[in-house]
Write a protein that binds this DNA or RNA. Structure first.
Lengths: 203, 203
DNA sequence: CCGATACGCAACGGTCCCGTTTCGTAAATT
DNA sequence: AATTTACGAAACGGGACCGTTGCGTATCGG
């Protein structure tokens, strides 16, 4: 047994540099965060930004899409823990996480990709949605369904439509809202308006 | 007077072909509608699609942005006439116009540009917003303010936030809603949920 | 030390598009 | 008829990337 104790046989030769790998992914995310679309993203630009030879990229990923998928995958979406006490609080928590991400340098990657590349890169989008979008969507749906069950929300509420309203509002804000960051109480205000409705209370 | 009666002196030589001009703009819009971003849009592709020499394009427009602006300008946004009776009806009219456009081949141009190119082409975006977005935004704001004044909406309603909720919801639907077109009653359902609120009626 | 693999770098031929120029032809004025 | 401008097509030199290859060096196991 000349094999490492871990059980995985280390192949001969110089091992791949983890530093280079990190630099490549960082460079990729940086470029995307700066508004570069996947189509305009060039391997040469990534290599240059990462201080790495193109060979080092091609050795690891066979296509640009694979690289982008892996890069985006490192952006774990740490879903905020939900208190689970009131639906209002949980909704605010979820929406505020979206707000915080839209201000985050890396969070914008997710937005930019989701907004721009949906049509043009369906395979990428599919994997990306499964990894980053679906978990949040599920969390939001669960909160809403819990609210319907508990009576905190209307029994006849169209949960899918409610999800569109909440998500769409936050997305709109992060795209066309004030350029210098969204106000801290935005999520709370959105939730309160949406819960109470825009119409005056029915006397 | 060898000048045309209209008063505009016709310059000597062969006049420019209106047919070619139309073909160029049509080709440009087609490509954008197919999901091509402004950055990926190439003059050669437009010329080829329009059945036109590149010279004919460069003679008329000095930059790609100018061409795109002119092309988008031909998409007049025919704001739907508002009945002005109830705020609910007017909101439904406005939102349903957005729904209809998202199904329209050419309407998608507006969406695609607005979603993807905002960061990368600020000058283009500025002119585009002024021409296509601002009128709708103004109409929506007026309806909401009228509702606040008339008592159909809460007196303390944050109109700007309400606009984000309504617009964002429709945009979200047209981007991630069912691929085979949005349901005809979507606008009505959105407006009713947003007006009445998701919370159950307070006793 | 030796073989194997990875590294950064530079160069390759190929493709796409740029913006310009040239060409022969078409359509208007004078 | 002569002049002027526009037309489509083709070709130009130039630039950006592509994906690949060769180079000398670095780093691993044996």
């Amino acid at each position: 047994m000349t094999i490492q104790g871990t059980g995985t046989a280390r192949p001969a030769g110089r091992p791949r540099s983890e530093k280079a790998e990190k630099a490549i992914i960082e460079a990729t995310l940086d470029l995307i965060a700066e508004g570069m679309g996947v189509s305009e993203l060039s391997i040469e630009a990534i290599a240059s930004r990462a201080g790495v030879g193109k060979t080092t990229i091609y050795r690891r990923w066979s296509s640009k899409e694979d690289l982008v998928v892996d890069a985006l995958a490192t952006l774990k979406a740490p879903l905020p823990p939900l208190a689970g006490v009131s639906v209002r609080d949980d909704l605010i928590t979820l929406l505020d996480a979206m707000r915080a991400e839209s201000g985050n340098r890396r969070g914008r990657c997710v937005m930019n990709i989701a907004m721009s590349e949906a049509d043009r890169h369906p395979r990428l989008t599919e994997r990306f949605v499964q990894r980053a979008v679906e978990p949040r969507r599920r969390a939001l749906r669960e909160v809403l369904e819990r609210g319907v069950a508990s009576g905190e929300l209307r029994p006849d509420l169209d949960v899918t439509l409610a999800m569109a309203i909440l998500s769409g509002t936050m997305m709109w804000q992060s795209k066309w809202g004030p350029a210098d960051g969204l106000p801290e109480d935005l999520a709370e205000r959105v939730v309160d308006v949406v819960l109470a409705g825009m119409a005056p209370p029915a006397g």
